[in-house]
Design a protein around this nucleic acid. Sequence first.
DNA 1: TCACCCATGTAAAGTGTTACATGATTAG
DNA 2: CTAATCATGTAACACTTTACATGGGTGA
Lengths: 186, 186
Amino acid sequence: MSRNEIALLGYALLGLIHQKPSSGYDLRKIFTDTPMAGYSDSPGAIYPALRRLEERGLVQGSIVAGSGLRQRKVLTITPAGLAELKQWLTGPIRQDDVGNHLNELMLRFAFLDGAAGRAATIQFLQAFEAELKVYVATLNGFLKIHAEKLGMSGRLALESGILGYEAQLQWASHAIHVYQNKENPK
Amino acid sequence: MSRNEIALLGYALLGLIHQKPSSGYDLRKIFTDTPMAGYSDSPGAIYPALRRLEERGLVQGSIVAGSGLRQRKVLTITPAGLAELKQWLTGPIRQDDVGNHLNELMLRFAFLDGAAGRAATIQFLQAFEAELKVYVATLNGFLKIHAEKLGMSGRLALESGILGYEAQLQWASHAIHVYQNKENPK
DNA sequence: TCACCCATGTAAAGTGTTACATGATTAG
DNA sequence: CTAATCATGTAACACTTTACATGGGTGA
């Protein structure tokens, strides 16, 4: 991540804060208690990430005296933060995203509907499905060419990956149906 | 990663060097050209990682004057390196490995047969299958309890994960069959 | 000669991990 | 009174990313 990009954890926090203004502690609990894949629940990651978001003016903190408890610093997303979030959510899906950054794509999907609306979500899913098809074909091609050299375990490991991506493909097709049959916005 | 542990990239390199003595450049090409998931092909990651392995005595480099080309430093695994690799490969599978470190588990599987043999591979697959079942059940439980609160996109994102893990489960069962029907070692 | 591939590496900067520090409140 | 939970943070360290540096060989 270079100087003016935001790390994935930053976007995860930004998206959650957009859904509901939260304190660092609230956000930590989400990572601890729910199966939100692979984000650190350690304060050493979350608090610095939140400070970076605040320094860039993407969130704004206000100290709230909780119900007799210690002070809570509740973070709210700013207009600039919402703009940044939307830009990230609606950016293009590149080839290698499907192979190497699937978790990022699923994170984007999880926030898309709430922040950018139904149309953007459907568009995302269709692009996702298309890239997945290409990627699965690539993997199958690779498997066919290198089947001999790989040995049994290498072959099976690759097949494991292919099956996983095929499952995502079925899911994407299902998700598109769900969204297309959803009644239009009021 | 604390002071005396080896990062995942280190194990990936160690396993590949065990399969076939290689130079840093050879290893880089593997990450660039094959769908070996998510490992950096950048020299800034690979060369320092190789130096660390060499400092710990897990691999040994010897400079080979290539066919008229520039010198190549070919790395070979040492007995200590093989011991370290085997220990990593045959270590237990913890609960959160399935959820958060699936790529590490698949990397282990890919090396297991060659470095620790068929019996260890079958044992690994059975443990993997068992942990996966527990994890899928956990996710389904979470989905049932929180379905309301999640909203449609959150629900779908979670379902995507569940489908992926179910695909791995089917794969594991398939892989166990393949290994059990494999003729016994000479 | 110019560009590209082979081949190895370093430097700066950013991020995450682990462990620690601090302090208030509530339940037993 | 003691432990657990709420709540926020810092410091040291290791790793990855990005970009750069170096130098020989090969094909147009």
